[in-house]
Amino acid sequence: MSRVVADEPGYVLHSAHYKETSVILSLFTLNHGVVQLIAKGARRPKSPLKSTLQIFRPLLVNWVGSGDLKTLIGAETASSFYLNALPSSGLAYCSGLYINELLTRLLPRGGPSEEIFSAYVTAISELFSTAQVEPALRRFEMAFLRELGALPDFEYDLDTGAAIEPSRFYRMHHHAGFVRADEQSRGALPGKHIIDCCTLDFNDAGSRRSAKIIARTLIDNQLQGRALNSREMIRKLMEYKHG
């Protein structure tokens, strides 16, 4: 039996040309996780879907199908979209593409994903409205990792069970938590930064730097050796900008 899904909130993560006039979409949805859809005729010259099926645009989508590849019946832009304009910096775009790539590579297919969806909506609107992309990216990464069950224990020392102290130094241990470390040792992070990471407080530049290291280590662990192209893209952008 084919199932019809109507008015499902979602975002296009990626679209690939298929045959002459169609596209295959990877759609991130509120209740069905990431689904693959074929949008027939979406590339015809007069197709209204062309402008609708853009990445970063909140959509309400209808589809039918029971297999892995569903068929799109219709899609419209959720009304809130025109309130926030698209960003005007390469870094904000690259950061958005990074989030899309993370979801494409790491989110298991099919399962509901309400928490991640709401983190995604927040992250996209934050990225597009502020000049500071890092706090938005870190908040999304932490929420995403939490839902994947990949967040370490930020509160207690894994060895001793004592609370992490702001003035001491720690290092990550087996991606599961933190243990005391010498300040000079490799990968040592101040306890304050770890606590900030737990409370998602990224006002301090040092905390932002440490949070980036923590998120990157955890994400690399999830990726199991696969590379993230968007990360390379951001690196290149920064390299050019800062000589």
Binding site: I55, G90, L91, Y93, M233, L237, Y240
Partner: peptide, 18 residues
């Protein structure tokens, strides 16, 4: 004028910014 095209344009504009 797709989001990817826009991203590419802004990427290049950022590189030429200085």
């Amino acid at each position: 004028p797709t989001v990817e095209g826009e991203a590419t344009a802004h990427f290049i504009a950022d590189l030429l910014g200085s």
